[in-house]
Amino acid sequence: MQRGKVKWFNNEKGYGFIEVEGGSDVFVHFTAIQGEGFKTLEEGQEVSFEIVQGNRGPQAANVVKL
């Protein structure tokens, strides 16, 4: 599992990016966020996640808020 901080997340569009220290930013879609109810992330929030290869490159999967 990787760890990072949410760079930004757009609730209306349902996606954003996670900053990884020493690495490239990783795309995150709301469907990758674990948990119940409305799935969103806050700027600066710490998360753990896996990186998978999506249609447009690397993206976050199994995102857990820390």
Rank of each mutant, 00 (worst) to 15 (best):
49 F>E: 00
24 S>T: 13
53 Q>V: 13
1 M>W: 06
50 E>A: 07
5 K>M: 07
32 A>L: 02
2 Q>F: 15
11 N>P: 14
46 E>S: 14
50 E>R: 13
40 T>M: 09
1 M>H: 14
7 K>Q: 07
18 I>W: 00
15 Y>L: 05
31 T>D: 04
66 L>P: 10
14 G>D: 02
47 V>I: 15
36 E>I: 09
29 H>Y: 04
39 K>Q: 07
35 G>S: 09
56 R>S: 06
36 E>Y: 08
33 I>W: 02
40 T>S: 10
8 W>G: 02
41 L>E: 02
16 G>M: 00
29 H>W: 05
35 G>I: 05
37 G>H: 09
18 I>D: 00
25 D>T: 07
4 G>F: 00
30 F>N: 07
5 K>W: 08
26 V>F: 05
18 I>K: 00
66 L>T: 10
52 V>C: 11
37 G>D: 04
60 A>D: 00
49 F>P: 00
7 K>T: 08
14 G>H: 08
29 H>F: 02
27 F>C: 03
7 K>L: 07
16 G>E: 00
57 G>S: 06
28 V>C: 14
9 F>N: 00
63 V>Y: 01
20 V>G: 13
27 F>L: 03
6 V>R: 00
14 G>Y: 02
58 P>W: 11
63 V>A: 03
21 E>Y: 10
51 I>N: 07
45 Q>I: 06
53 Q>C: 14
43 E>P: 13
19 E>W: 12
54 G>E: 05
26 V>N: 02
23 G>P: 12
16 G>K: 00
14 G>E: 02
48 S>E: 15
28 V>H: 00
7 K>F: 02
44 G>L: 06
35 G>K: 05
53 Q>I: 11
19 E>Y: 06
18 I>P: 00
29 H>S: 02
29 H>T: 02
57 G>I: 03
64 V>Q: 15
63 V>T: 02
37 G>Q: 06
5 K>V: 10
22 G>F: 11
38 F>D: 05
49 F>H: 02
62 N>H: 06
39 K>P: 04
30 F>S: 08
7 K>V: 09
57 G>Y: 05
41 L>F: 03
14 G>F: 02
46 E>W: 09
2 Q>E: 14
64 V>T: 12
66 L>Q: 14
20 V>Y: 13
19 E>L: 14
34 Q>L: 11
59 Q>A: 12
46 E>G: 11
66 L>A: 08
62 N>D: 15
24 S>D: 13
22 G>S: 14
10 N>P: 01
13 K>A: 06
22 G>I: 10
33 I>R: 02
38 F>P: 08
4 G>C: 00
59 Q>Y: 11
31 T>C: 04
41 L>R: 01
39 K>M: 04
43 E>I: 10
36 E>V: 12
20 V>R: 12
11 N>K: 08
42 E>Y: 09
3 R>H: 09
9 F>C: 02
4 G>Y: 01
66 L>F: 15
30 F>Q: 10
57 G>P: 02
9 F>W: 06
3 R>W: 05
31 T>V: 02
2 Q>A: 12
16 G>W: 00
64 V>I: 12
23 G>A: 15
20 V>H: 15
55 N>M: 02
36 E>W: 11
31 T>L: 04
58 P>K: 09
35 G>C: 14
38 F>L: 06
10 N>T: 05
42 E>H: 13
37 G>L: 05
24 S>Y: 11
48 S>R: 13
34 Q>F: 15
64 V>G: 09
63 V>W: 01
24 S>G: 12
32 A>E: 07
55 N>G: 07
35 G>M: 13
23 G>Y: 07
55 N>D: 02
38 F>I: 09
59 Q>F: 15
62 N>Q: 15
15 Y>F: 08
48 S>P: 01
27 F>Q: 03
43 E>Y: 11
56 R>H: 07
45 Q>A: 14
24 S>M: 11
63 V>P: 01
59 Q>C: 08
20 V>L: 13
